[in-house]
């Protein structure tokens, strides 16, 4: 599988007040052509900033170091026409469709604007293509929908419209940032199935951001777990439960209540998740980790290959195979 996206040592600082604050501190990740990679973690871990860095949608004044390569081209230095051409090859779907659509423009305007203004496609032809796409995302009767406004559509329908609009420019990479988090669970299942199917049909690569490990496992080939602006573990999506490589992943799995059983107490992780700017000099997870030793406080671990994945834990080799069994008993 050839690499479509390669992040290497990506560091991003954002301007907060008068100072710069790190939000990503050395993110390294590859996405192959047609591959689906999950990015999971808690709030502030840097998932969305990773996607925004790839899409070149960081807030103004952001400082970026390290490299983002897309199909061999360095993305961080693209400008003008090259940047616009690059952006046509990627598409992004956000958590809240209502925040990313103009409420006073019709669905038809929203879906055909880019074709008409940038590609000079006549209105009738653009509408025909929009109706076709609506059909692809499971919205029949597209001609009627084009005349409707966002407030007339349910969240699930509107998210399908967003997916349709993401597919319009026939991108090679889809950045999906919690696309189903705001949806009902039955709608989530439906929209995820749609995304999964379209992605496979079109050979589209996907970076799927979610806080839900199970959901990532269901639709991704590989999953990366983020904590405090870094990737702490990365491996085949379905192995995260059975063979976690980092204590944080194991703790995350254990902390989640189980639909099949009531626990006397949940295995809560003490403390709260850290953001990159709060991370101590050693391992960022050390003060919440049941396996932490003295050296974890002082030595910053690197992301090292282990088994079929990688882990950013000094004790990864020695803890291998015990994490998911012991974390809840510690």
């Amino acid at each position: 599988m050839s690499g479509l996206v390669e992040l290497d040592g990506l560091e991003v600082d954002l301007r907060v007040g008068g100072s710069m604050r790190p939000v990503l501190s050395g993110t390294t990740l590859q996405i192959g052509r047609g591959e689906a990679v999950g990015l999971v973690g808690e709030s502030g871990s840097g998932k969305s900033m990773t996607a925004r860095s790839i899409a070149r949608l960081l807030p103004e004044g952001a400082e970026v170091r390290g490299s983002i390569r897309f199909d061999g081209t360095e993305v961080t230095s693209l400008r003008g026409a090259d940047l616009r051409a690059y952006r046509r090859r990627i598409a992004m779907v956000f958590q809240d469709p209502r925040a990313h659509v103009n409420p006073v423009r019709s669905i038809g305007d929203f879906l055909t604007e880019e074709l008409r203004t940038n590609e000079g496609v006549p209105r009738a032809e653009a509408e025909r293509r929009a109706i076709e796409l609506l059909d692809v995302v499971g919205i029949p009767d597209g001609a009627r929908r084009l005349r409707q406004y966002p407030h007339e559509l349910s969240g699930g329908l509107l998210q399908r419209v967003m997916i349709a609009s993401a597919l319009l420019s026939e991108p090679e990479l889809l950045l999906a940032d919690e696309p189903t988090t705001a949806l009902d669970v039955t709608t989530q299942s439906d929209v995820m199935a749609l995304l999964d199917e379209l992605r496979r049909e079109r050979g589209l690569a996907m970076l799927f951001i979610t806080h839900d490990l199970e959901l990532a496992g269901a639709v991704c080939d590989r999953t990366a777990v983020m904590y405090a602006g870094q990737i702490v573990e990365e491996q085949a999506a379905d192995a995260l439960y059975t063979d976690p490589l980092h204590p944080y992943t194991a703790a995350l799995v254990a902390a989640r209540p189980d639909i099949d059983a009531t626990a006397a107490r949940l295995a809560a992780i003490p403390g709260r998740p850290l953001s990159a700017f709060e991370a101590p000099p050693g391992c960022a997870f050390a003060d919440r980790c049941p396996f932490s030793e003295d050296r974890c406080e002082s030595e910053r671990p690197a992301l090292m290959p282990i088994a079929a994945g990688s882990s950013r834990c000094l004790r990864a080799e020695e803890l291998r195979g015990r994490l998911h069994l012991t974390v809840s008993d510690v």
Binding site: I139, P140, V185, T186, Q188, A193, E214, A218
Partner: peptide
């Protein structure tokens, strides 16, 4: 049953329904 089956879990696959 539909609600319960829609919850992601290990081995789960999302299902398409008709709109």
């Amino acid at each position: 049953r539909l609600l319960r089956d829609s919850v992601p879990r290990p081995g789960w696959k999302p299902q398409r329904r008709q709109v």
